[in-house]
Simulated scan of single mutants.
Amino acid sequence: MSRLAVHAVLFDLDGTLIDSAPDLAGAGNEMRAARGLPLLPLAHFRPMVGSGARGMLGRALQVQPGDADFETLRDEFLSRYEARMTRETRLFDAMRPVLDALREAAWPWGIVTNKATRFSAPLVQALGLGREAATLVCGDTTPHAKPHPAPLLEAARRMNVEPVRCVYVGDDLRDVQAGRAAGMRTVAAAWGYLGDGERIETWGADHVIESPGQLLKLLALA
């Protein structure tokens, strides 16, 4: 595995840095319970967490964008999620040594997510990551969301690091597309939610890693 000549790391949030699936799935199951439907296992929701409300509603109630009641149900889902989004969500255990190593090496790192600021900012603060991350760029920070490169370029600008000296780590095809478009090195996180689309090996990332610890080897920090 070749090492990456970079000086800063950007992470996707859900499925890469944190495991938010229990609370997102929990909001979906709350909607089912309110309608007298049986609860579904976390494994039913988990692959679609990266798709946000759209994915969760598809799994919970089999509704999709364009359906007559989709927007009303989406608003209900988001309200339920906002009320519980810090209940079970945690930093992936294996990410803690990675963040500690970045701190010890004085490498800046940040978060670039398509999740709206309304949810991302309080969640990052609640998990204690706001004290560590050099920047947080959300889905509504720039005029475009991933796979557009604008959010990643904004994060690099805020950290005062050239995009070519950054690596972006994410668990979705859009992360790889955005990173490549921004001129960054890309790492696909195979421990993430991944969705039900193309296989991770076909995304075109510079590297695919099975665990966070492998990132430290890529960065020559382990």
Rank of each mutant, 00 (worst) to 15 (best):
G128T: 12
A178Y: 03
M56W: 06
V124T: 13
V167S: 10
A126T: 10
H148C: 15
R96P: 00
H207N: 00
A156I: 09
Q125M: 13
C138I: 01
L99N: 06
G139D: 06
G139L: 06
I200Q: 13
V112L: 06
R59P: 00
S2P: 11
K217W: 04
Q177L: 14
A156G: 09
A189I: 08
E132V: 00
G195W: 03
V208K: 04
K217L: 07
R54P: 01
M31F: 08
R174I: 02
W203H: 09
A155E: 07
L219N: 09
F77R: 02
A83F: 01
R180C: 06
A155F: 07
P143S: 10
R180M: 03
R54I: 12
G183I: 09
R158D: 04
I111M: 03
V98G: 05
G110L: 06
V63P: 01
D206H: 11
S51V: 00
Q62T: 04
G55E: 06
Y168F: 15
R90Y: 02
Q125G: 11
V167I: 12
G110Q: 05
L123D: 08
R3G: 01
G183C: 11
S20K: 07
V98H: 05
G50K: 04
E154Q: 15
A222D: 15
D69K: 04
R103F: 01
G197Y: 00
L153I: 08
F77E: 02
L17F: 12
E30N: 02
L10G: 12
H207K: 00
L73Q: 15
V63Q: 03
P149D: 10
V9R: 13
N29L: 04
D69F: 02
L4I: 08
A178C: 04
T72F: 02
G183D: 11
A145C: 11
A34S: 15
P41H: 10
F11W: 14
M85D: 02
L218W: 10
G52D: 08
R46T: 12
G52H: 06
S2D: 08
G66R: 12
M31Y: 11
G179V: 00
A156E: 09
A121N: 07
A106H: 15
Q214I: 00
R3W: 00
W191V: 12
T117K: 08
A155H: 09
K115D: 08
L99P: 05
G15Y: 03
L78I: 07
A205F: 02
R84Q: 12
N114P: 04
G66W: 13
P149I: 11
P151T: 06
A101Y: 07
A145F: 00
G110W: 03
V176P: 02
